[in-house]
Amino acid sequence: MSQDGSRIGEIDTSRPHPARIYDYLLGGKDNYEVDQQAGDQLAAAAPEVRIGLRANRDFLRRAVRYVVDSGVRQIVDIGTGLPTSPNVHEVAQHTAPDVRVAYVDNDPIVKAHGDALLSGFGTTSIVLADLREPHAVVDHPDVRRIIDFDEPVALLLVAVVHFLTDEDEPAQIVATLRDALPAGSFLVLSHATGDFADRSEAQAVYTRASASLNLRTRTEIEHFFDGFDLVEPGLAQVPFWRPDTPPPPRSAEIGFYGGVARKTG
Rank of each mutant, 00 (worst) to 15 (best):
T176C: 01
V231P: 05
F228P: 03
R61C: 01
R15M: 00
V99A: 13
G52C: 00
H135Y: 13
P233H: 14
L118Y: 13
G258H: 12
L230C: 03
P18M: 06
V137M: 05
H17G: 08
V110F: 05
P248I: 12
R15S: 12
E151W: 09
N31C: 01
R65V: 02
D148K: 00
V34C: 11
F196Y: 11
L26C: 03
P134I: 07
G114E: 09
R100V: 08
D23W: 11
A180Y: 07
S6V: 15
R208C: 11
V68T: 14
E222Q: 11
V143G: 02
L187W: 00
L53Y: 01
D150R: 07
D115E: 15
Y257I: 04
S119M: 13
Q3K: 15
H223K: 15
P97L: 09
A197N: 12
P86D: 04
E48I: 01
N31D: 01
R218G: 00
V72Q: 02
L230P: 00
F224N: 05
A38I: 00
L157V: 06
A236H: 09
R216N: 12
R57G: 01
A45S: 08
H191S: 07
F121D: 15
V188C: 05
V67M: 06
R262I: 03
S200G: 08
R62E: 01
G52A: 04
Q237Y: 03
Q237G: 01
D198M: 01
Q237A: 06
R73E: 08
A63E: 05
E169F: 10
D150Q: 02
G9K: 08
A192C: 07
D226P: 03
Y103I: 02
T245H: 11
N56W: 04
D77C: 00
L42I: 14
G265V: 08
V64D: 05
L213F: 07
Q37G: 10
L82T: 00
P83R: 13
Q74H: 07
D139M: 14
G120H: 15
D244W: 11
D4C: 04
H140G: 07
V49F: 02
H140W: 15
G9Q: 09
V110P: 09
D40W: 10
R144F: 03
Q3L: 15
V64S: 09
Y32I: 03
Y206C: 06
M1N: 14
M1I: 12
T219C: 13
V143R: 06
G265T: 10
P141I: 02
E33R: 10
R15W: 03
A211Q: 14
D107M: 05
S251A: 15
A116R: 11
R57S: 00
D40L: 12
E33I: 10
A202W: 10
T13G: 13
G258I: 08
H89F: 10
E232Y: 06
D107V: 08
V76Y: 10
E167Y: 06
N214T: 14
H17K: 02
A46V: 07
H162E: 10
T80F: 12
D226C: 10
V188L: 01
E48V: 03
D23P: 05
H113N: 13
Q237N: 02
P249K: 06
I147E: 04
Y206I: 05
S70F: 07
Q41N: 14
A43K: 06
L26A: 13
D30C: 11
D130C: 08
Q203P: 02
T264K: 02
R145L: 13
L164F: 13
V76K: 07
G114I: 09
A55I: 04
